[in-house]
């Protein structure tokens, strides 16, 4: 049986009440590290690394260069990505803890109740697309919405940060919505 654990160890996050409830939340300084610490397939690990690279490739606007650089190393910590063994409606989830308006802790879980694939495969979900979406949440980015939000056009399902995702699909190109939201937060 294979499962993934990716850990992310963070420093304190900054309060960003103006963007909260709209674009998302943020960490104050660079969340440091992401890890795998259990069984996984090599191609799954590479898919997750590719997801990290996509976010790392986005320039942050405050010039710190820190936020985009955290997703490259692997160490053990409290914050994790892990397979979830119970039945769950979403295929993946990111939970993060907000204290005084700051993200202080984030965890991604991927359900084992569906089939995962590397690339588009009938009946399975592409792991890079899902992890890239969840890493967007780890960074603090909220979902784009079909109405009421900045993503009010029919292109919403093309965004990595769109809340739904289908089987036999790959969605790993960060759209202008994904990038500008990230840059508005950082």
């Amino acid at each position: 049986m294979c499962w993934i654990t990716v850990g992310v160890s963070w420093t304190t996050a900054v309060n960003s009440s103006d963007i909260r409830n709209y674009l998302g939340f943020r960490w104050e300084t660079t969340p440091c590290i992401v890890m795998w610490n259990c069984d996984y397939e090599t191609d799954q690990r590479e898919a997750v690394r590719a997801a990290m690279s996509e976010w790392n490739g986005v320039a942050d606007t405050d010039g710190s260069g820190l936020v985009a650089s955290y997703l490259t190393n692997y160490v053990d910590s409290l914050n994790e990505v892990n397979w979830a063994y119970f039945k769950s409606s979403p295929i993946a989830r990111t939970r993060f803890n907000i204290v005084d308006g700051y993200i202080v802790d984030a965890t991604i879980s991927l359900t084992l109740m569906v089939d995962w694939s590397v690339g588009a495969t009938a009946g399975a979900y592409d792991i890079q697309s899902a992890v890239q979406h969840e890493l967007g949440h780890v960074l603090g980015i909220a979902h784009c919405h079909e109405s009421g939000g900045p993503c009010s056009l029919g292109s919403c399902p093309n965004n990595v940060m769109s809340p739904t995702f289908g089987t036999n699909q790959v969605r790993t190109t960060l759209t202008s919505y994904d990038i500008t939201t990230y840059q508005s937060i950082y």
């Binding site: 803890n97 909220a142 809340p163 739904t164 995702f165």
Partner: peptide
């Protein structure tokens, strides 16, 4: 109280 937010990626 502290708040834990949970964002799901939902099957389409």
């Amino acid at each position: 109280k502290s708040t834990v937010y949970s964002y799901g990626l939902w099957p389409y």
